[in-house]
Computed example of a mutant assay.
Amino acid sequence: MSSCCGNAQKTRTQGNRHACPVNGKEYVEVRVSTIIHHIVEPWNWDDDGEAFYFCDDPECRVVYFSASNKVITQDQLRTPIGQKNTSEMATLCYCFGVSRGDYIKDQRVKAYVLDQTKKQTCACDARNPSGRCCLKDFPS
């Protein structure tokens, strides 16, 4: 397993940002390998090598987008996007199946996820649609 919060998550050009074509906010690049774990029929997706970015705005229909304004929306994914959902059913941690409701009921769950992250038993780069560690998605 990879270190979900370590250097193993580098994208093509780490730190590269681009504005979402729908909401105009800037977002960080996401690895193509992350996208193919979440899209329906990844074998039919034409990866032309273009960089894609992850939009986490709950108000925006776009999930992934490219600099040339190609978009992938929730209906093109097999994974519900917890970052775009404010309900208690929304997933906070994809590696361990933790929902917002789980965290509300027992805040020790965040300590568990943190401990597992330190032990490098997570796989956020593939499981989390953002391709990044879920710890920032937990409410403060």
Rank of each mutant, 00 (worst) to 15 (best):
residue 106 D to N: 15
residue 114 L to E: 14
residue 104 I to G: 03
residue 80 P to T: 07
residue 113 V to I: 12
residue 124 C to T: 10
residue 119 K to S: 13
residue 109 V to T: 05
residue 118 K to C: 15
residue 95 C to I: 11
residue 116 Q to M: 15
residue 75 D to Y: 06
residue 88 E to M: 06
residue 77 L to S: 03
residue 87 S to G: 01
residue 123 A to Y: 14
residue 122 C to F: 14
residue 113 V to L: 05
residue 111 A to L: 08
residue 86 T to G: 08
residue 74 Q to A: 09
residue 116 Q to F: 15
residue 124 C to P: 06
residue 112 Y to P: 01
residue 87 S to N: 04
residue 72 I to F: 06
residue 96 F to V: 13
residue 116 Q to G: 13
residue 85 N to P: 04
residue 123 A to K: 14
residue 82 G to A: 01
residue 95 C to M: 10
residue 70 K to F: 04
residue 125 D to H: 15
residue 75 D to G: 09
residue 121 T to C: 15
residue 96 F to W: 14
residue 113 V to R: 00
residue 88 E to N: 11
residue 121 T to L: 15
residue 112 Y to V: 12
residue 79 T to S: 10
residue 98 V to I: 13
residue 104 I to M: 10
residue 92 L to G: 00
residue 82 G to H: 00
residue 72 I to L: 09
residue 109 V to L: 11
residue 104 I to S: 07
residue 109 V to G: 04
residue 120 Q to K: 15
residue 71 V to C: 09
residue 114 L to F: 12
residue 84 K to S: 05
residue 74 Q to W: 00
residue 115 D to W: 14
residue 75 D to F: 08
residue 102 D to E: 05
residue 87 S to M: 01
residue 87 S to V: 05
residue 108 R to N: 13
residue 105 K to P: 01
residue 105 K to E: 08
residue 111 A to V: 02
residue 104 I to W: 06
residue 115 D to S: 14
residue 92 L to S: 02
residue 109 V to R: 05
residue 101 G to C: 03
residue 119 K to I: 11
residue 109 V to A: 06
residue 93 C to P: 02
residue 95 C to L: 13
residue 96 F to N: 11
residue 116 Q to K: 15
residue 99 S to N: 04
residue 70 K to C: 09
residue 69 N to Y: 07
residue 118 K to W: 15
residue 117 T to M: 12
residue 109 V to S: 02
residue 76 Q to L: 11
residue 113 V to K: 00
residue 93 C to G: 03
residue 103 Y to A: 00
residue 108 R to P: 02
residue 97 G to W: 07
residue 99 S to H: 04
residue 85 N to S: 06
residue 113 V to M: 06
residue 94 Y to N: 09
residue 104 I to T: 11
residue 124 C to A: 14
residue 106 D to Y: 08
residue 91 T to I: 08
residue 77 L to F: 03
residue 93 C to W: 01
residue 85 N to W: 03
residue 121 T to Y: 15
residue 81 I to H: 00
residue 71 V to I: 13
residue 73 T to P: 01
residue 70 K to T: 08
residue 87 S to W: 02
residue 109 V to I: 13
residue 105 K to G: 08
residue 69 N to E: 09
residue 78 R to W: 09
residue 73 T to E: 06
residue 104 I to F: 05
residue 85 N to L: 01
residue 103 Y to H: 07
residue 112 Y to N: 08
residue 80 P to F: 00
residue 100 R to V: 00
residue 87 S to I: 07
residue 110 K to L: 04
residue 101 G to K: 03
residue 107 Q to H: 13
residue 86 T to R: 10
residue 99 S to M: 05
residue 73 T to L: 03
residue 113 V to S: 01
residue 94 Y to S: 07
residue 105 K to C: 06
residue 92 L to T: 01
residue 106 D to E: 12
residue 80 P to R: 07
residue 83 Q to R: 09
residue 97 G to L: 12
residue 73 T to Q: 08
residue 101 G to E: 00
residue 80 P to D: 07
residue 98 V to L: 07
residue 92 L to D: 02
